[in-house]
Design a protein around this nucleic acid. Structure first.
Lengths: 226, 226
DNA sequence: ATGTAGATGTGATATAAATCACATTTTTAT
DNA sequence: ATAAAAATGTGATTTATATCACATCTACAT
């Protein structure tokens, strides 16, 4: 689909810093594509030939591990998907899959590189983006590796509630099986944790995945205690 | 100590791209400092006021977790230490501590920013550096979260041997306790794993931490099997 | 509607690894 | 040199979580 970058309301902070003629160039080197739930946006092992920008929707970033698929993080629009995998190597080291209906801009790598070369503010903003993302990842890795399961699940639910959906009630964006691989645990153990949290009246979870946090204070405590 | 950036043999790939006048600026905005084993280079929670570049030596990057200290990675010179923690926030999110005698350049943040603004090749190289580092971190994290202890230890030893020291024989750069926190396990369990690997004749480990890999093929197998 | 495949809940059991408890060794300080 | 502190090795025990086994349940295709 032909994009309209000039008047796009979902421009990245970096793209906001592009000059008019650069925006024109962007527009000519950008393809906007819709993805339905479950569709692959880019796949591990294929060539990374475009910068991928999530304009709308929710996406999971995941990679093959020794045991199976590992979800590394969720990305909510607006966000660049996989700058590291595009710049870090010729080949993608991880995959991106739409969790909800999503809109994605594929930007020519050459055009994007030229922005970095020619527009220092743009380059600086991209660097800031990479750095902030990596800090958040470190934090999550550290917590994931030191907390045990109840703490990891509590933390995940708080993250969904506080950052992703900004609400105490939301629909679980992932299946139990996916949640399990996100928090590095078995499906059965995660299922049991949810049962336990429901039994204790800390959350309410309906058959159709609508989750309500009833006692955020308790979740905070469980998350903090590991 | 007054640095001599112009003729420095340990310049980063990015700094190699600076123009002569920029190198002069770098030289005027750079302080070179030596650290002994165990000394803190920068600490989590303090203000990140400088770009930190490791010219010589070996450094651990670590952060406080819910349980205790978590080692995130080892950095061997030459490498930027903590670009993410410098650009990502005003305050350091993690610490850097010298593992061996090290030499570090502290570069003024403003000067560094100006290089990004004015020199696109420099900016691009920094972006590449950030991306490659993050890819490696993802890979390590996925392995860490899916393999069990024997696999994690085997992988770590192979990493030391293949990348860090490029030799089958080396001195363990970390104490058993530190190794344990690196691979997210208890000190006792790690100690037992080393005993077991020695018993099986896969490694030889002397009282003074000199380690020799006798059966790399076996380590590869253990690492691959998780 | 009916069947089939995939996702989920839950009890029973197995197991990896933590924890506890201590002896020993090594390092550091005085 | 000697004491104190820290790091390490190893057996016994406990514990969190994986695995196994199966019963639902849900979704989708025919």
């Amino acid at each position: 689909m032909k994009p309209d970058c000039k008047f796009c309301k979902m421009k990245s902070p970096a793209a906001e810093l592009l000059k008019p003629d650069e925006i024109d160039t962007l527009e000519q080197n950008c393809a906007q594509v819709k993805f339905s739930k479950g569709e692959t946006i880019f796949r591990e092992g294929t060539f990374a030939t475009n910068i991928v920008y999530l304009r709308l929707g929710l996406v999971k970033i995941h990679m093959k591990g020794p045991i199976g698929e590992k979800i590394l993080r969720l990305n909510k629009a607006p966000a660049y998907l996989g700058l590291p995998t595009t710049f870090g190597d010729r080949v993608n080291h991880y995959s991106a899959t739409a969790i909800t209906e999503s809109e994605v801009c594929f930007i020519s790598l050459d055009a994007f590189k030229n922005f970095i070369y020619s527009n220092g503010n743009f380059a600086y903003e991209i660097i800031m983006d990479l750095c902030r993302t990596e800090l958040a990842d470190f934090q999550r890795f550290t917590n994931l590796s030191q907390k045990q399961l109840p703490g990891r699940i509590a933390e995940l639910l708080l993250c969904f509630s506080n950052h992703l959906f900004k609400s105490n009630a939301f629909e679980l964006p992932l299946s139990i099986t996916e949640l399990a691989n996100f928090v590095s645990a078995s499906r059965e153990s995660v299922s049991r944790q949810f049962s336990e949290l429901s039994r204790l009246g800390i959350i309410e979870l309906t058959h159709d995945k609508k989750l309500t946090i009833l006692r955020k204070d308790m979740l905070d405590k469980i998350s903090a205690n590991g």
